[in-house]
């Protein structure tokens, strides 16, 4: 199987805007699947609501597109029902850690064997550009016209508060690192969470003064640095993997 076989070509083009980075992550997931040689009949992709949520329908495998925030519990139900399946959640930050925050918290605690890919663009893009739980402090959005008053959610902190965890922060610019993280997540026996730092030009960037998607992509390059061997947890602008094979106690 090559990566192209994981794509439902008759569903192309996608509904993602020109300049969007979800497609990059989608493509690299198919590459990671090819590398890990995951048979199409032994995997399921689950998505919630949002731009990233449409990804499930573009995979040429059995896929489920559920209600807002509920991708993680449906995925965990699938995995616990049939342990042979490789279950991948592909969704956005608002979906997974906003409305689905409680499920994220507890599925991580239960160390359910699902691989969660979270496209973090820091905004509710599909609904027009409202403040997300991941929107940086002070940013103006449709629902925070004077700038957000809150710090963004510390996703790494939540995942790593468990005894056993696997967390990666990567970006849609650093694609080699992205591919490596996806490959490692597919192999990890337990709850794996990849936060892919991303952007939305249409409903966030253009209001911040970005001219196009490329400018936002290069901002990722400027902002984030790889840290191959993090000492403890990743700092705010570091990309890397943190994990602990510890047992629940």
């Amino acid at each position: 199987m090559i990566y192209k076989d994981y794509v439902k070509w008759d569903r192309m083009p996608t509904n993602w805007c020109p300049g969007c980075s979800i497609g990059t992550v989608f493509r690299h997931l198919t590459l990671a699947l090819e590398k890990a040689a995951v048979p199409r009949e032994q995997m399921v992709v689950v998505s919630g609501i949002g731009c990233s949520g449409r990804a499930a329908g573009y995979f040429n495998v059995d896929s489920v597109h559920v209600t807002h925030g509920r991708a993680i519990p449906v995925a965990e139900g699938i995995k616990r029902s049939n342990e042979k399946l490789k279950v991948i959640v592909f969704s956005g930050d608002g979906d997974l850690v906003g409305i689905g925050g409680n499920h994220f918290l507890h599925s991580a605690r239960r160390d359910s064997d699902i691989k969660v890919i979270c496209i973090n663009n820091g905004i509710y893009g599909m609904t027009g550009g409202q403040m997300a739980p991941t929107t940086p402090f002070g940013e103006k959005t449709l629902t925070s016209p004077f700038g957000t008053s809150y710090a963004p959610l510390n996703i790494q902190g939540i995942v790593t508060s468990n005894a056993r965890y696997w967390y990666a922060r990567t970006s849609s610019y650093h694609v080699n690192h992205l591919l490596k993280c996806l490959g490692e997540a597919l192999e990890w026996p337990g709850f794996a969470f990849i936060e892919v730092m991303s952007f939305c030009i249409e409903n966030f960037g253009r209001r911040q003064g970005f001219k196009n998607g490329f400018d936002m992509l290069f901002k990722l390059k400027q902002d984030y640095k790889l840290n191959p061997k993090p000492d403890g947890l990743l700092k705010n602008h570091e990309l890397g993997v943190v994990k602990n094979v510890g047992q629940a106690s």
Binding site: K8, R40, E41, Q42, M43, V44, A56, G57, N60, V61, D62, S63, V64, H65, I78, N82, K84, L85
Partner: peptide, 9 residues
């Protein structure tokens, strides 16, 4: 699930 191509939405 696991038969290949169905999309539940």
């Amino acid at each position: 699930l696991g038969h290949g191509k169905r999309h539940f939405t």
